[in-house]
């Protein structure tokens, strides 16, 4: 996708700048952009390492299994076809817990594993089952306790209160997740 969008952005912008006479601004932005990428990465590095460190501690404790137990009632509503003793059940909950803790690197492989397990019992191999569809929608909802990336960006850009967006993010995420799952529940009966 970006292989198409990226060149289009650059070509159109440069041509437009030439047409309206903004060439010197364009010229300046070329060098500023690489400089700001370095600035951002360096300030970003600190907060990022802090969180991957903290979350690694969480990963090593039994916290993940505790959280898995908390998910039980939600699992029943979202995945009525998947039983507690299924392998897929464990993989799905582990993926959701990894997402909640902000362990993106751990969440994706777990998620792919869960998809493969669910595909084994899928009667129509080229079509998503209800559970698989629901699982993907949950993974697009970005359920996270601490939105670490955004906090890192905000503190690197001189915010007086980088964490002030945590509660708004929680509310927005929950609304988005509810809208996604409820619409899926309705749509899966028709399509």
């Amino acid at each position: 996708m970006l292989n198409i969008i990226w060149p289009i952005f650059i070509i159109i912008s440069y041509l437009y700048a030439i047409c309206v006479g903004n060439v010197s601004e364009i010229n300046q932005s070329i060098f500023e952009s690489s400089k700001s990428a370095v600035d951002l990465s360096i300030t970003f590095l600190g907060t990022m390492c802090l969180w991957t460190g903290i979350m690694r501690i969480a990963q090593k404790t039994s916290l993940t299994t505790q959280l898995t137990n908390l998910l039980k009632p939600i699992m029943k509503i979202l995945f009525p076809d998947i039983k507690r003793e299924d392998i897929a059940y464990k993989e799905i909950t582990m993926n959701i817990v990894a997402n909640i803790l902000g362990l993106g690197n751990a969440a994706t492989p777990l998620g792919l594993k869960a998809m493969k397990t669910m595909q084994k019992t899928n009667p129509k191999k080229d079509t998503l089952t209800n559970s698989m569809a629901m699982f993907i929608i949950i993974n697009t909802a970005s359920i996270q306790i601490i939105p670490t990336t955004v906090i890192a960006i905000r503190s690197s850009l001189g915010s007086n209160n980088p964490t002030s967006i945590i509660l708004p993010v929680w509310i927005a995420t929950i609304c988005a997740a509810v809208a996604g799952t409820v619409s899926a529940k309705i749509l899966m009966k028709k399509y």
Binding site: M115, Q119, K125, A133, A172, T173, T181, S183, L187, M188
Partner: peptide
Amino acid sequence: AVGIKKTRFVLISALIADITGM
């Protein structure tokens, strides 16, 4: 990853979630 072509309503629901979030 699992070779599925028919995604049914997933895109619609996910976009509903995104727009709601925004």
